[in-house]
């Protein structure tokens, strides 16, 4: 049994909220910068150049990469040999978010009720996903999610007979409908299988995976590659103003599903795909 105090969790989450909003993960950053070299549209190149310059300014002058510093999505994997002491864990996670968004000069974008839309003024509560895993460590991923792209995400309950072609059509339709609204170039997180809510959670998790580590299942890896190619053939381009760079990457996560179903969730993220992971 290992004891972890909630003060440690608060401190780590605070730092991760700030880090995620000022510095992109290296896989995302290198794809944004790499796209500039490959893009052939004049306006597209101009926009990708601005995005690279934006990343430089964000880290040099300590300004958040995007003004939508997101709703804080937290994945927390708790080793079953860990004993947590201090605050209630959920309070501790939200305290970390509160401190991070305040001390990091991040925007408070959460309202307390979907209809009574009063800002909670500290960006809490976060969206917390708990997993119990073997071991004596806690792994935390903080992924601040902007809603320009979140709003363009979709869930489809396809039929088994729709197969891979049906999934492709659903993804391409979603990306086309998103068009300029989701701030392309985008990253596409896809969850396939499970149930209605499981595929959505898988899609969100897929966004936190390093884009340089494709799926370890061959048929899924092929689907990731095919979809990235086909999305970039749509011509939406940077800012939705035309070009080859519509998506920077496609990550897919799968799960066993029911004999009657083929659930698919497409979670779209803009090029500011933020995620930081730490282990305590």
């Amino acid at each position: 049994m290992r004891v972890i105090r909630t003060e440690e969790i608060i401190q780590q989450i605070k730092e991760m909220c700030i880090e995620a909003n000022y510095q992109l993960a290296s896989d995302v950053e290198s794809r944004v910068r790499g796209a500039f070299l490959k893009e052939t549209s004049v306006l597209g190149r101009q926009i990708l150049g601005q995005l690279s310059e934006n990343l430089d300014i964000a880290s040099a002058d300590f300004i958040p990469i995007c003004q939508d510093t997101g709703m804080a999505i937290v994945f927390i994997k708790i080793g079953q040999n860990v004993h947590i002491e201090g605050l209630n864990l959920e309070e501790a996670i939200n305290e970390g978010i509160r401190q991070g968004y305040e001390e990091g000069y991040l925007r408070k974008s959460v309202v307390k009720d979907p209809f009574i839309r009063i800002n909670t003024k500290d960006n809490t509560p976060g969206i917390i996903h708990y997993d119990i895993v073997p071991g004596d460590q806690i792994e935390i991923t903080v992924a601040p999610k902007g809603f320009g792209s979140e709003n363009m995400s979709r869930v489809y309950m396809l039929k088994p007979s729709d197969g891979i072609e049906g999934v492709k059509q659903a993804v391409l339709e979603t990306v086309k409908l998103a068009g300029p609204n989701a701030c392309p170039p985008i990253v596409v997180g896809i969850g396939i299988g499970g149930s209605f809510e499981k595929c959505a959670l898988l899609a969100k998790k897929a966004l936190t995976r390093n884009m340089n580590q494709p799926s370890d299942q061959e048929h899924i890896r092929t689907l990731e590659e095919d979809l990235l190619f086909e999305i970039n053939e749509l011509g939406i381009g940077p800012g939705g103003l035309g070009g080859k760079t519509t998506a920077l990457g496609v990550n897919i996560e799968t799960y066993p599903t029911h004999i009657a179903g083929l659930p698919v969730a497409i979670n779209i993220c803009c090029h500011v795909n933020r995620h930081v992971t730490r282990v305590i």
Partner: peptide, 13 residues
Amino acid sequence: FAAVGGAGALLSK
């Protein structure tokens, strides 16, 4: 007009 989405640091200048 459109400004470039996700270039908030640059635009702030």
